[in-house]
Every structure is written in C-alpha cells, then in structure tokens.
Amino acid sequence: MSEAASTGNQAFIQAAADAKSFTKKPTNDELLELYALFKQGIEGDNTTVAPGMFDLKGKAKHNAWTGKKGISKADAQAQYVALVEKLKATHA
C-alpha cells in the first residue's frame, strides 16, 4: 500500500483499510467497482494488456478499470472513499 501512501490522501488510505475489514463480502459488482476505483486512484488510466478470453475474472477486472478511463486519480480516490463509506453501512 506504499503507492497509496505516496498520494498523501489519508481518507483514501483509511478507506482501503476499511474495505479489507468488511465482515460481509460485497457483491461481485461492488467488488469490481472498488477494484476499478482503487486502481484508477493509484495508477490512473489502464494501460495494461487485456487478459485472454478464458480469463473471465481478469477480463471483468480489466474492463471495470478501463471503464474509469479519464477520471483523475483524485476524483477516483474520492469516489472510492464515498463507495466504501456507503458499503460500510451494510458490510461492516
């Protein structure tokens, strides 16, 4: 998580820790949204090669992250924090 620490956004870092401590697992759609916003918040636009057609999980994650293209790191981090706060009501 040192990459997140370099952003200097304490709320984002705390939200990432909170997301790992959910007692009830979020839905697959919620997990994909968390993943995509986290990756966009840390790395920016997805420039990785798409996984092969038989890697369904990898493809879903890749597509979710790619769907956040153009969102700034700061905006993605803010959206991630807001999503974690929303999910804490039902999953924490």
Rank of each mutant, 00 (worst) to 15 (best):
E33R: 14
A89C: 00
A76W: 04
N9P: 13
V81Y: 01
Q40Y: 05
G8W: 10
N9D: 15
K39V: 00
A82Q: 13
G44H: 04
P51V: 03
A60F: 01
G67R: 04
G67S: 08
K88T: 09
G8F: 14
A15D: 04
S21C: 01
T7Y: 13
P51K: 03
K86Q: 14
M53H: 02
G67F: 01
F22S: 04
L56K: 12
T90D: 14
I13T: 14
K88M: 13
A60K: 11
G44T: 05
L31G: 04
Y35C: 05
K20V: 01
K69E: 09
E3V: 12
A74V: 12
L83V: 13
N63R: 09
T7R: 14
A17R: 09
N63Q: 15
E43A: 14
K86G: 07
E3D: 14
Q79T: 03
Q14L: 07
E85S: 12
Y35T: 11
G70Q: 03
A19K: 01
H91C: 11
E30K: 03
K20L: 11
Y35Q: 04
V81E: 00
F38V: 00
G58V: 04
A4Y: 10
A36V: 03
I71R: 10
N63W: 00
A16E: 13
K69P: 02
I42N: 08
V49K: 13
Q79L: 12
D29R: 06
K86Y: 10
K20S: 12
D55G: 10
L37I: 11
K39F: 03
A36S: 14
H62A: 01
D55K: 09
E85A: 13
Q14W: 00
G8H: 10
E43T: 10
T66V: 14
N9W: 00
I71N: 06
F12D: 10
N63S: 11
D75F: 02
M1A: 12
K61P: 01
D75G: 06
W65Y: 07
V84F: 07
G70D: 02
A60E: 14
S6Y: 02
H62L: 02
M53Q: 12
F12T: 11
A50Y: 06
A17C: 03
A60C: 04
S72C: 06
T66D: 07
A4K: 09
G44Y: 04
A15Y: 03
I42M: 13
L32E: 08
K88V: 06
A76G: 05
E85L: 04
T27K: 05
V84W: 02
S2E: 14
